[in-house]
Design a protein around this nucleic acid. Structure first.
Length: 890
DNA sequence: GCGAAGTA
DNA sequence: TACTTCGC
C-alpha cells in the first residue's frame, strides 16, 4: 500500500458521538454507572477504521481545553459555548486509554487546537508524498482539502461519512479550499462565536467570493457594492479580516513528532479487551475476537497466540470417531452443539466433554450410535457442568436422547449473580474471567449467512466453551455462596429449568382450523375498514404507516396534534382515543389497528409456528429479564389477548391434547400487591387481604377519604391505576398518561397514596437508601437487581433507578414465588404419577392440560401448592377454572 | 415499568 | 430504527 495517513479530529468526533445519542434520553452506561455513549460511538468509529485497514499511518489530535493563540488575539473567541456536560466529561479519560490500548498515536499541544495539529501534519505528510485523509465533523476543515488531502465529514451520527475532494467543494459551494476561511470571515460561525460581517450569510458570501475571489478582492472593488451592504462592509472591514484569521487553520505548528512516528502496527488486543470489558462493550470484544482468529488462522502474527489465560490448554484438539466407556468421566463440563437458537426439532452438531484429564469432541452422528455415550448422557450420577442445560436437554429429547446429571449451569449462575447479564452465550462471561471463547455469531454466522462450518471449527469452539464452563464452575459457585444466593440458584433456578423444559417439550395444542376461520373473518372485516378509511380520507394511503397516517390526519384532515414523537406526529391509540369525536375516520382506524394486530401477530403469527405435532412449542427464557420474571419467545405465549373480547377469542384455538381432557387455569389473585403489603409491612393492606376485602376499593377509601359505600367506580378505577403504578414502578408522568390527567394531579394522587399508607413511604426511603449504598436491591429470596442508575447525577436516570429499586423486589419476589410453586407442583404430579401436565406460565398464572379423571385432584393440588409456596404476612389466594379451551377456562 | 413481535 | 400494541 502507498503511504497513507489518516488524521482524526478527536475532539470534534468525541463530542459528536456524545450529542448524537445524548438527546435520545437514557444515556448508555456500564455496570459501574459510568456513562459510555460517547465512548461507544468513538470506539465504533475507531474499530471500523482499524478493520478497514486502509492506511499505513494514523494520528488522533485533541484540544488541550486551555487557551489558544486565538483567544489571545480575540477575546470573544468561543465565548458563549455551553459548559461540557459532566456526563461527557467523565468519559474523557477512557478515550486516551482506548487509544493507548489500540496503540494509536495521539496528543494535544498547549496553545493550539486539534485543527491546527491536523493542518500541520496534513501539510507535512502531503509534502512527503502521503495520501491524507482527515476525519472530522468540523466543516472548517474543508479548507485543508487538496489533490492529496480529502476530508471525510460525518453526516448524521457517526456512521455515515461523506468524502470531500476539491471537485466536490467546487460543486457544492462553488469555492476552492483556500476560500473557506474567507467564507467564514464574512458569514461568521456561531459555534465558535466568530462574528463575521453582520447581515452577511452564506448566500451573499459565496456570491461575492465567486465574483472577487477573496476578502481582499472584495475590498479592492468595494465601490461596486451598493447601499446598506456597502455601508456594512466599510464599517466591519476590520472584523472581516480578524474573523478570517480566526477561521484559518494553522499549518506550521511547532510539533515534535514526525509523520513517521505515526506509523501504525496493531492493537494490543489484551489491553483493549480489558477496557472494553470494563465499559461493557461486548460487541467490540466480539469484533476483536474475530479479528484475532483471522490473524491466527493466517498465521501473520505469532505474538497474538494465547491471547487470554486458559487458552494454552486448548491447543490439542481431539475429534473422536469412537467412544469407549473409559473416556467418559464422572464429573466434567459438557457442551451440546445446537447451532440454531430455537432448539425444537433442531439439528444437533455434536458434543464436547472437558475436565482436567479429558478433552474431546464427538460429532452427533457418531455419538447417537454409541450405547456407551447415550448411557453416560442419561446417567444422573455422571455430573455435567453446562451452559443452558434446558436447551441441551430439550434439544436432545426431540432426538429421543435423555440427558441427566446437570450439575451446574453457567447461564443461570451468571444470571443470578447479575440479572442484567442476559447473554445467551458463553463468550462474554468467559471473557470477563479471562477465558477465550468465540462468539456464536462468529462460528455460525447469522441470518442469511448462517452456516455450520467444518467439524474442526465447531469442535474447537465447543471444546473452548466446555473448557471455560469447567473452570468457571467453582468460581461462580463460590460467588453464589458468598452472596447468599446459592440456594436461589441451586434450589430454585436449576430445578425450574427442568420444569420449563418439560413444558416446552410438551407444547400446547392449537387448532389450526379455528385460526383459519378467524383469519378469513378478519380479512373480510379489515378489507371493509380499509375501504371505509380511504373513502373518509379522500385518498388511498398505507394505513399501517404511522408516517402516512399522520399526514392524512393532521395535515389533510386538519385534526389537532395531541402528541408528537421524535420523528413526527404520534398516532398512538391514546391519541386516537382523544380524537374519537373529532372525525368519523378515527373509529374505523382504531378498529383497523385492533384487527390487523390480531391477524398479523396472533392469528397468522400463531399459525406459522404450529409444529407437525399440531402443537406450539414456545421457548422460555430463564435468564432474560432484570426482575427475575421469565419471558417466552417464538412465539410469545405470555401476551395472548384477554382484555378485549375480540382478541380473547384467540384463546379458543388453544385446546387440550385430547377432547376428553381439560384446560385448567390457576392464577394468583393480586400477588404483587400482597407481596408489597408483606415487604413494606402495611397493616391496612395486610388486614384487607386477610379479610378478603376488595383492595382497590380499600385503596380508594383511604386515598379519597370516603366510606366504602361511597366509592364510585371512577374512584376505584383511579385507585386501581395508582396500585398498578406502584407495582410497575411508573412515574407521575406515566400515571398521568394512564389516567389522562395532568402530571400535577397524578403527582398529588401518588402523594395522597403515600399519606394513606405511610409504611410505603418508609419502605421507599429504606429501599432507595439500600440501593444507593449497595448498588442493587434484593427480592425476598435474594435475587439481586443491580441498579447503577440510582447513583446518576441525571435526574431522569436517577428517577428511573429509584422506581426500579422499588419495583424489582415486588415483581421479583412474585416471580420467585410462582417459580417455587411450579417446582412443587411438578414434583407432586410426578410423585402421584398423574397424567396431567403443566403447559404454560404467564407470570401469575399456570395453565395445565388435565385428564378428566384427575380434575379434582389437580385443582386441589395446584391451588394448595400455589398458596403454600411461601408463607407471608398475607395469605396468597388462587383463583382457578376448567374449560374445553383456554378461552373457556375462566 | 418490562419483554416480544409486527410493520414500514 | 422507530413506532405501535399485546400481556403482566
Amino acid at each position: 500500500m502507498d503511504k497513507k495517513l489518516i488524521l482524526i479530529d478527536g475532539n470534534s468526533l468525541f463530542f459528536r458521538a456524545y450529542f448524537a445519542t445524548a438527546y435520545s434520553g437514557n444515556l448508555m452506561h456500564n455496570k459501574a454507572g459510568l456513562h459510555t455513549n460517547a465512548l461507544y460511538g468513538f470506539s465504533a468509529m475507531l474499530m471500523k477504521i482499524l478493520d478497514e485497514h486502509q492506511f499505513t499511518h494514523l494520528f488522533v489530535a485533541f484540544d488541550t481545553g486551555k487557551k489558544t493563540f486565538r483567544h489571545d488575539q480575540f477575546e470573544h473567541y468561543k465565548a458563549g459555548r455551553k459548559a461540557t456536560p459532566p456526563e461527557l466529561l467523565e468519559q474523557f479519560p477512557y478515550v486516551f486509554r482506548i487509544l493507548n490500548a489500540a496503540r494509536v498515536a495521539h496528543f494535544s499541544l498547549s496553545g493550539y487546537e486539534a485543527d491546527d495539529l491536523i493542518g500541520t501534519y496534513a501539510k507535512r505528510a502531503e509534502e512527503q508524498g502521503f495520501e491524507v485523509q482527515i476525519l472530522t465533523s468540523d466543516r472548517d476543515m474543508l479548507q485543508l482539502i487538496s489533490d492529496k488531502v480529502t476530508v471525510r465529514l460525518t453526516k448524521k451520527g457517526l456512521s455515515e461519512l461523506e468524502d470531500n475532494t476539491p471537485a466536490m467543494l467546487q460543486e457544492k459551494y462553488q469555492l476552492t479550499a483556500s476560500q473557506i476561511p474567507d467564507l467564514k470571515g464574512l458569514m461568521g460561525d456561531t459555534s465558535d462565536n466568530i462574528i463575521g460581517i453582520p447581515g452577511v450569510g452564506e448566500k451573499t458570501a459565496v456570491k461575492l467570493l465567486g465574483q472577487y475571489g477573496s476578502i481582499e478582492g472584495i475590498y479592492e472593488h468595494i465601490d461596486e457594492l451598493k447601499g446598506k451592504q456597502k455601508e456594512r462592509f466599510v464599517e466591519y472591514e476590520d472584523l472581516a479580516f480578524k474573523s478570517r484569521k480566526l477561521a484559518t487553520i494553522e499549518t506550521n505548528v511547532p510539533v515534535e513528532a514526525s509523520v513517521e512516528d505515526m506509523k501504525y502496527d496493531d492493537v494490543d488486543a489484551v489491553a483493549l479487551t480489558e477496557i472494553f470489558q470494563e465499559l461493557d462493550f461486548q460487541s467490540f470484544i466480539k469484533k476483536l475476537n474475530l479479528r484475532q482468529s483471522v490473524l491466527e488462522q493466517n498465521g501473520t502474527d505469532e505474538s497474538m497466540g494465547g491471547l487470554l489465560e486458559g487458552l494454552e490448554e486448548s491447543n490439542e484438539l481431539l475429534v473422536v470417531d469412537k467412544i469407549t466407556a473409559d473416556m467418559l468421566p464422572d464429573n466434567c463440563a459438557l457442551t451440546v452443539e445446537i447451532p440454531t437458537s430455537n432448539y425444537h426439532q433442531a439439528h444437533v452438531e455434536g458434543f464436547a466433554v472437558v475436565n482436567e484429564t479429558t478433552r474431546f469432541y464427538v460429532p452427533f452422528m457418531i455419538a447417537k450410535k454409541s450405547e456407551a455415550f447415550l448411557a453416560w448422557l442419561a446417567d444422573e450420577s455422571k455430573q455435567k457442568a453446562m451452559f443452558d442445560y434446558k436447551k441441551a436437554t430439550v434439544g436432545l429429547e426431540w432426538h429421543d436422547i435423555a440427558l441427566n446429571g446437570a450439575s451446574f449451569d453457567l447461564m443461570l449462575a451468571g444470571y443470578i449473580l447479575d440479572s442484567t447479564y442476559t447473554q445467551d452465550e458463553i463468550a462474554p462471561l468467559a471473557a470477563s474471567k479471562g477465558y477465550d471463547v468465540a462468539f456464536v455469531e462468529n462460528i455460525y454466522g447469522k441470518g442469511a449467512k448462517f452456516a455450520v462450518p467444518e467439524t474442526p471449527v465447531v469442535a474447537q469452539y465447543a471444546i473452548d466453551a466446555a473448557h471455560a464452563v469447567w473452570y468457571l464452575k467453582a468460581d461462580l459457585e463460590n460467588e453464589l455462596k458468598a452472596n447468599g444466593q446459592y440456594e436461589l440458584y441451586q434450589d430454585l433456578e436449576m430445578p425450574l429449568a427442568h420444569v420449563l423444559g418439560d413444558m416446552e417439550f410438551a407444547g400446547i395444542h392449537v387448532n389450526r382450523k379455528t385460526l383459519d376461520n378467524m383469519s378469513d373473518d378478519m380479512e373480510a372485516r379489515i378489507g371493509k375498514l380499509e375501504a371505509n378509511i380511504h373513502e373518509l380520507a379522500g385518498t388511498d394511503f398505507n394505513i399501517g404507516s404511522p408516517k402516512q397516517l399522520g399526514v392524512i390526519l393532521f395535515e389533510k384532515l386538519g385534526l389537532p396534534v395531541i402528541k408528537k414523537t421524535k420523528t413526527g406526529y404520534s398516532t398512538a391509540a391514546d391519541v386516537l382515543e382523544q380524537l374519537r369525536t373529532a372525525h368519523p375516520i378515527i373509529e374505523d382506524l382504531l378498529m383497523y389497528r385492533q384487527l390487523t394486530k390480531l391477524k398479523s401477530t396472533y392469528i397468522d403469527g400463531l399459525r406459522n409456528v404450529i409444529f407437525d405435532d399440531g402443537k406450539i412449542h414456545t421457548i422460555y427464557k430463564q435468564a432474560q429479564t432484570s426482575t427475575g420474571r421469565i419471558s417466552s419467545i417464538e412465539p410469545n405465549l405470555q401476551n395472548i389477548p384477554i382484555r378485549l373480547e375480540e382478541g380473547k377469542l384467540i384463546r379458543k384455538a388453544f385446546e387440550p391434547s385430547d377432547k376428553e381432557r381439560w384446560i385448567f387455569a390457576a392464577d394468583y389473585s393480586q400477588i404483587e400487591l400482597r407481596v408489597l403489603a408483606h415487604i413494606a409491612k402495611i397493616p391496612a393492606l395486610i388486614d384487607a387481604f386477610k379479610h378478603g376485602r376488595d383492595i382497590h376499593t380499600e385503596t380508594a377509601v383511604r386515598v379519597f377519604e370516603v366510606e366504602p359505600d361511597e366509592v364510585t367506580s371512577n374512584m376505584r378505577r383511579q385507585a386501581k391505576a395508582v396500585n398498578f403504578g406502584i407495582i410497575y414502578g411508573i412515574s407521575d408522568f406515566g400515571l398521568s398518561q394512564q389516567l389522562g390527567i395532568p402530571v400535577a394531579q397524578a403527582k398529588q394522587f401518588i402523594e395522597k397514596y403515600f399519606q394513606s399508607f405511610p409504611e410505603i413511604k418508609a419502605y421507599m426511603k429504606e429501599t432507595i437508601g439500600y440501593a444507593r449504598e449497595h448498588g442493587y436491591v434484593k427480592t425476598l429470596f435474594d435475587r439481586k437487581r443491580y441498579i447503577p442508575e440510582i447513583r446518576s447525577k441525571n435526574y431522569n436516570e436517577r428517577s428511573f433507578g429509584e422506581r426500579a429499586a422499588l419495583n424489582a423486589p415486588i415483581q421479583g419476589s412474585a416471580a420467585d414465588i410462582i417459580k417455587f410453586a411450579m417446582i412443587e407442583i411438578e414434583r407432586a404430579i410426578e410423585a402421584e404419577e398423574l397424567q396431567s401436565k403443566l403447559l404454560l406460565q404467564v407470570h401469575d398464572e399456570l395453565i395445565f392440560d388435565v385428564v378428566d379423571s384427575e380434575k379434582d385432584r389437580i385443582a386441589e393440588l395446584v391451588s394448595e401448592k400455589m398458596e403454600a409456596a411461601v408463607t407471608l404476612d398475607v395469605p396468597l389466594k388462587v383463583d382457578y377454572a376448567f374449560g374445553r379451551t383456554w378461552y373457556d377456562a375462566k
